[in-house]
Design a protein around this nucleic acid. Structure first.
Lengths: 196, 196
DNA sequence: ATACGATACGGACCACCGGTCCGCTTCTTT
DNA sequence: AAAGAAGCGGACCGGTGGTCCGTATCGTAT
């Protein structure tokens, strides 16, 4: 066991939760994630700025931690849940299910997703997080016969549900949730069904 | 004529060009667009910071202006050039040609494209610039029989060539230019050929 | 050529943000 | 209860985008 993994102090845990709650609510209530400053979050959580940076390293770290926390249910469902998301599903059904799940998540957590992707300095791509989704999707596509370039197709499919595009369609274009899901489903089906 | 369109003063024009050149070269020589500050650009162009903001409004304005300027040749070729990019081309060939052209442009001008899209505050989507490409692409798709949801498909295809993805594949994954073009072409063909 | 109004210049200046630092408080352990 | 570790918080810092206005330059009318 390389990591002793000491359990955190009581107040530290409480503060962590408070920060999550505050950040979530602040991001939800702002036009652009850029409007929310670290100081704002600290204040809303009733915590000093130092605490914030001590706990998460930097702004990106905080957002990423929050995002991962919120995403965990889906991640679980994909890794060890029942069909159609779980691993026991045949690829041809699992791929659309997976994309739909992520789409729904990004719809429900637009603010977070956008805060994360729009973190500015580093592209969303080299994050371990993206790598995981891409690898999973690619391997699934590989398992579908008659599929062309699984690697690129995986990238392209993921690109179709990027946070800012989803937000744009949902908010700016006022596309209803169900319609968006349907559009994505059709597109996915098309991609999967082609080159047969 | 709502715009009198007074022609600019001589020095203004000269400075504008100098700024473009300086910014272009600076962005090209940096890991992340964020490393280039407005002051840097002003200094490199031999110009005061005030001039910079007076001419372009703000950072985003500068980048956008530069991007549009560099993009103009392609825009022209699409709007009034010869096939396969020009308007006289049947949609089934024009769509791939168009995507390929944009991909190549983004490969050649990664720094700019990324500086523009990663401008942070506002999503790339509500820019008039994106709207144009999307509308054109959608209308072309409309003209291909057996096509499903042209509107969403257009978004998805454009998403597949977003600057940061292209940069990631080209630099991080070291995908050669020709291979990338080929991958995109195959994917496009698949999307266009499906749902027949 | 000259004089004069309009336009553009430039860099000191400002507000603000992410991130650091360190004296002080709170928890945990024995 | 006492001591040491872990965590806290807010004053502080470097640097960035953006503003302001006295000054220099340009276009033009004479």
């Amino acid at each position: 066991m390389p990591e002793p993994e000491r359990k955190p102090r009581k107040d530290a845990a409480r503060n962590r939760a408070a920060v999550f709650a505050a950040a979530d609510s602040l991001f939800a209530g702002c036009r652009s994630p850029g409007e929310v400053t670290m100081a704002d979050i600290a204040a809303a959580a009733g915590v000093g700025k130092g605490t914030l940076f001590r706990a998460f390293g930097d702004r990106t770290g905080l957002i990423r931690a929050l995002y991962e926390a919120r995403l965990e249910p889906i991640r679980n469902a994909v890794e060890e849940g029942p069909p159609p998301l779980g691993p026991a599903t045949p690829p041809l059904q699992r791929v659309p299910a997976l994309l739909d799940a992520v789409l729904c998540f990004k719809l429900d957590n637009r603010h977070l997703a956008q805060a994360l992707e729009g973190t500015g300095t580093d592209s969303p791509y080299r994050s371990e997080h993206y790598e995981r989704w891409h690898t999973l999707l690619r391997d699934l596509l590989q398992g579908i016969p008659g599929q062309g370039d699984s690697d690129f197709t995986a990238h392209a499919l993921l690109a179709a549900i990027r946070a800012d595009l989803v937000t744009y369609l949902a908010d700016e274009k006022e596309t209803p949730r169900e319609e968006l899901r349907d559009r994505l489903a059709r597109f996915t089906a098309g991609v999967l069904g082609s080159a047969r």
